[in-house]
Amino acid sequence: MDIQLFRIDDRLIHGQVVIGWAGYLHSEQIILCDDSVAANDWEKELYLSVVPEQIRAMVFSVNGLTEHLLQGKDDYSKTIIVINSPQIIEHLLQAGVRLKTVNVGGIHFKEGRKKYLPYLYLSEDEVHSFKRCMEKGVNFECQDMPATRVVPLGNLLEKNINE
């Protein structure tokens, strides 16, 4: 499936996505996938309000996105899909969605998470979830902004085990 950018970012739609990536990639559509946002009209409106007019934006629940991707009718070559955790990737894979490369754009500090990069803090559960996805063939590239260095998540996790 040709998706322009499939991104994990706990901030979902924000400046780095709409100014940084969508501008750089000339994206035409942004899909936010999150169950709690999809179920809350106020949150949905807040996220959609920050997307520039020239970009279409939609909010899906995890099941909604799964169905949408499995139908495979749409062209995602100018679409950024943003989710906030690797567990959603696991759900998609389990349902039969095929994903090759996923951008890891930011999971930030909160209690119980360990620092891997300035924009990447992971809990043990998240590390295990990423590893299960990697075993199923998903390639995770850590990169917060288009101009920054790509760091393969696999190397980062391996390095951390060895330290």
Binding site: D10, R11, I107, H108, F109, K110
Partner: peptide, 8 residues
């Protein structure tokens, strides 16, 4: 917002 999650 550099390190902290929005939640924090």
């Amino acid at each position: 917002n550099q390190d902290m999650s929005l939640e924090v």
